[in-house]
C-alpha cells in the first residue's frame, strides 16, 4: 500500500531536487559545482551585479516578455471573445489553426520563422523574437481566457446595454472586470513562457541575446557557472512571486463573482 506513497516521494524529489540544489550551490564558496560544500558566500550574487552583458540580456528579456505577453493577451481576448460569443463560418478550423503552435515542435516553428523572415528581408532584432513569442504564447492566452469568457452569462452584456450603456461601455464596465483575473493570469503565464523560452529566441535573436540565450552562452565558461546558479536562484524567486500574484488575482476574481473555485490553471 505504500508503493504509491513511495512513488509520489520519488517523483517529487526527482522534480524538485535539482531546483533545490540551485540555491544551495549559489551560496557555496567554490567554483566547482560539487559536494562537499565549501562555506557560505554571497559573492556570486555580487558578481552578477557587475556583468553588463547580463543586464543587457535581462532588460532585453523583460522587454520581449512584456511585449509578447501584452500582444498575446490582447490577441487572446479578441479570439476568446469571438469564439465564445459569436457564430461564424469555419470557426472550428480557424480556432484550430490559431491553437496549432501549442503542439508544433518549437524548433520547426523557429526554423520556419527564420527562413520566412530572411526571405522577406527582415533583420533579426528583439521585434522578431517578440513576433515568435507572441505566436507561441497566444494559444495559452486563448486557452486561459476562453474559460473566463465561457463562464459569463450572455445576458450580462445585454443587461448593461438595456440599462443605457453602449456596447463598448457594456464590455468595458461589465465583461472586462469579470474576466480581469483571466487576463492577469494569461499575461503572467505568457510573460513567464516568453522569459524562459530558448529555441525561438536563439534562432530569431539579433545582436542582443535574451536571458536564456545569454545563460546558454555562459555555460561554456566553467568559471561563470556559480553566478549562473545565482541567476537561476533569482529567476526561481521571481517566478514564485509572479505565480503567487497570478493565483491571488484568480482567487479574488472567483470571490468577487461568487463562482465556485474549480482548481484553476495555476
Amino acid at each position: 500500500m505504500n508503493w504509491l506513497r513511495l512513488y509520489a516521494i520519488v517523483y517529487l524529489v526527482f522534480l524538485y531536487l535539482p531546483v533545490l540544489l540551485l540555491p544551495v550551490f549559489s551560496f557555496n564558496d567554490a567554483t566547482v559545482i560539487a559536494f562537499p560544500l565549501n562555506g557560505f558566500t554571497t559573492k556570486w550574487f555580487v558578481e552578477l551585479a557587475g556583468i553588463d552583458a547580463l543586464h543587457g540580456a535581462l532588460k532585453n528579456s523583460l522587454f520581449i516578455g512584456l511585449s509578447s505577453a501584452t500582444l498575446s493577451t490582447l490577441l487572446g481576448i479578441c479570439a476568446a471573445r469571438a469564439s465564445t460569443r459569436y457564430r461564424f463560418p469555419f470557426k472550428a478550423p480557424i480556432m484550430g489553426t490559431i491553437m496549432l503552435p501549442l503542439v508544433l515542435p518549437e524548433i520547426i516553428v523557429a526554423v520556419s520563422l527564420l527562413v520566412v523572415l530572411m526571405q522577406l528581408g527582415f533583420s533579426l532584432t528583439s521585434w522578431t523574437v517578440i513576433m515568435g513569442h507572441t505566436l507561441i504564447c497566444t494559444p495559452f492566452a486563448i486557452a486561459i481566457l476562453s474559460s473566463s469568457f465561457q463562464g459569463l452569462d450572455q445576458s450580462l452584456e445585454e443587461a448593461a446595454v438595456d440599462l443605457g450603456e453602449t456596447r463598448w461601455g457594456a464590455f468595458s464596465k461589465i465583461i472586462l472586470p469579470l474576466v480581469t483575473p483571466g487576463i492577469v493570469a494569461s499575461f503572467l503565464i505568457a510573460f513567464t513562457i516568453s522569459m524562459d523560452e530558448f529555441i525561438i529566441a536563439f534562432f530569431l535573436t539579433g545582436a542582443d541575446p535574451t536571458l536564456p540565450v545569454y545563460i546558454w552562452s555562459q555555460l561554456r565558461f566553467p568559471k561563470r557557472l556559480p553566478s549562473v546558479m545565482a541567476l537561476g536562484t533569482l529567476l526561481i524567486l521571481a517566478s514564485l512571486v509572479l505565480l503567487s500574484i497570478a493565483e491571488y488575482f484568480r482567487r479574488r476574481g472567483i470571490r468577487r463573482t461568487g463562482a465556485k473555485d474549480s482548481g484553476g490553471f495555476l
Binding site: 445576458s155 450580462l156 445585454e158 443587461a159 446595454v161 440599462l163 453602449t166 461568487g258 463562482a259
Partner: peptide, 30 residues
C-alpha cells in the same frame, strides 16, 4: 433606435445581476 436608447427596460430570465458589484451599484447602474 438602438436598445440602449429605448424607453424600455428588461428583467432577464437569468436576472443578469452584475456579480462584481454590490446590490446598490447594480440598482444604480442605469
Amino acid at each position: 433606435v438602438p436598445a440602449n436608447k429605448r424607453p424600455t427596460n428588461m428583467v432577464f430570465q437569468s436576472y443578469a445581476i452584475f456579480p462584481h458589484l454590490t446590490v446598490g451599484q447594480n440598482v444604480a447602474f442605469g
